[in-house]
Design a protein around this nucleic acid. Structure first.
Lengths: 208, 208
DNA sequence: TAGATTGTTAATCGATTAACAATC
DNA sequence: TAGATTGTTAATCGATTAACAATC
């Protein structure tokens, strides 16, 4: 779908474009110009037009962008309609918080199952998601071939579980553990949510 | 403490420098050169030296950097030793996951209390942190003047709670809600953890 | 001392912004 | 049509990398 080399800076802005367009769409806004969109997001109109031009032509001279169409285009670009599937490994506090609160479906990912070592929760169902034993992870991966694995295990288990996920064929790991995963397979993408980095950035900013 | 204008790109790299140095420190590494550090982090030695030069001189020609000293310097730069305090608002799944698993102290923030609307948990203590009623939030802020507020409330409550935190004098908000907070006070910093943006970035990357 | 490695200046590269012809 | 706004090219700005004198 994508063409040419899209810079990381652009890629990181795409979700926010989508999110803003989605809000406008839900509010019933029909059209918006790059300058109005830029104003509302605190970026320049030039940047928006330049960024979008990496993927095609979505606007119309003299009119701007149709909100519904651009939202749809962005969701396609982001792969939200590709039918990606996911499994979650580690149904502790954070894993359960994601299972209960995070809208996987709204973001294009169906979550099919969770895995944990704790026999007290293995076999239960949380918010509609079954929790299976870690022992069955590898067989499950082989059978269902999920696109990504959500990694919410304790730190010490992170690397070994990541390797099992990769051996099982996932294409991406959504990493919530605070370690740098050592992933040699260059076809597997790791996206990390580093809570501590975020808090320390805030700490720096309030220190200035 | 900081001098001059430090670019956002540099600021965002600081926590990772700290994290890497901390790991080296715990492993007992005494000294490291910018090239060795760069190699292990996947960045150039030039960038590390250039970044650090924003804050002072921490190395020694022919030797490199003393790991313990540089780690300490980074923690100072990040404000980890400034005695910052925090409160958490919204003790739902995510809030409780943070209270149980996130090491506030290791990151220089003492968490003094949590607040929630649910009468079933108000008055309880979780992992040593007392959970108080939302009704008492404003008085608590006035009395204790925490540095930051951790915002883990439901979406619909986010903006109004943020305003109460700001009125109560916090200098920063660590925002886990998926909305763009409208903060007019330019002295208050908002740092957001956008789960959906992170997952959508991963989605894009595996689509390539 | 000789070798290593810093901090910093200069060169390069890439990303953002400005400008404008095309055109709805 | 006239006004508005795009997509894109050119100009600017900023960030990264390379080079090297200083020096431990």
């Amino acid at each position: 779908m994508k063409k040419g080399k899209v810079s990381n800076a652009v890629i990181r802005r795409l979700p926010r474009y989508y999110r803003t367009l989605d809000t406008l769409y839900r509010e019933g806004t029909v059209r918006i110009s790059s300058s109005a969109l830029g104003e509302s997001m605190g970026v320049t109109a030039s940047q928006i037009r330049q960024d979008l031009s990496c993927f095609g032509e979505f606007g119309q001279q003299g009119y701007g962008y149709n909100v519904a169409d651009l939202r749809q285009a962005l969701s396609d670009i982001l792969g939200m309609n590709a039918g990606y599937t996911s499994v979650l490994v580690g149904a502790g506090n954070l894993g359960r918080a994601l299972m209960r609160n995070f809208h996987f479906n709204k973001n294009g990912f169906s979550l099919s199952a969770a895995f944990d070592v704790d026999p007290k929760i293995v076999g239960t169902v949380l918010n509609g998601y079954p929790i299976y034993s870690m022992d069955s992870l590898d067989d499950y991966l082989a059978e269902h071939k999920p696109s990504i694995g959500v990694l919410t295990v304790p730190k010490y288990a992170a690397q070994s579980v990541a390797e099992r996920l990769i051996a099982g064929g996932v294409r991406g790991i959504w990493n919530f553990t605070n370690i740098e995963l050592d992933v040699s397979d260059s076809n597997v993408v790791v996206e990390s949510v580093h809570f501590a980095d975020s808090l320390l950035t805030l700490s720096y900013l309030i220190s200035e």
